[in-house]
């Protein structure tokens, strides 16, 4: 009954003077394996790091980038903070909603996209911008956003 994330976690733990410090990375690992942080995933992290599971959950829900429900195959993380907003990010939200039928915080019926509204993602000079999974896409327009998203199945 070997844990799913045990091996990778060993290297991560070695970076820190205390096991507990590996919690954030461990949650990322678990999220990658399970797709989201289910109770099972958090329980596994708890056992691996010997951090009580309620504590794990407290930490996991504090940070915005951990997912607490099943997400789509692709996660669109679109910034709507001021620099992006004044350059039309809100219109892009509408386009995504209309084109793919996905509400902010939700997932499209076909499971292709989830949409997450982000605070600033550090691309204000090339606003509006988004991350799809781990790829940056900047200088978005009402036209190019669809082309970009079409690249994700």
């Amino acid at each position: 009954m070997k844990s799913q994330i045990a091996d990778e976690l060993e290297c991560v733990k070695a970076k820190y003077p205390a096991e507990r410090a590996a919690l954030l990375p461990a949650l990322y690992l678990a999220q990658r394996k399970y797709g989201w942080l289910s109770a099972e995933a958090m329980d596994e992290v708890s056992r691996e790091l010997r951090v009580p599971k309620a504590t794990v959950r407290g930490v996991a829900t504090f940070y915005a980038m951990y997912r607490h429900k099943q997400v789509g195959r692709n996660v669109i993380q679109l910034c709507t903070n001021v620099s992006c907003m004044i350059l039309g990010a809100e219109r892009l939200v509408d386009i995504i909603r209309e084109k793919y039928g996905v509400e902010p915080g939700g997932t499209s019926a076909d499971g292709r996209f989830s949409l997450v509204i982000m605070e600033c993602i550090g691309a204000c000079g090339t606003a509006p911008a988004m991350l799809v999974n781990t790829d940056f896409h900047e200088s978005l327009t009402q036209e190019n956003i669809v082309t970009i998203l079409e690249g994700y199945r």
Binding site: N81, V82, S83, E119, C120, G122, A123, C124, G125
Partner: peptide, 11 residues
């Protein structure tokens, strides 16, 4: 952590 909105200087 560069999180302050509008900031992208460290990137």
């Amino acid at each position: 952590d560069e999180g302050e909105p509008g900031t992208f200087k460290d990137r």
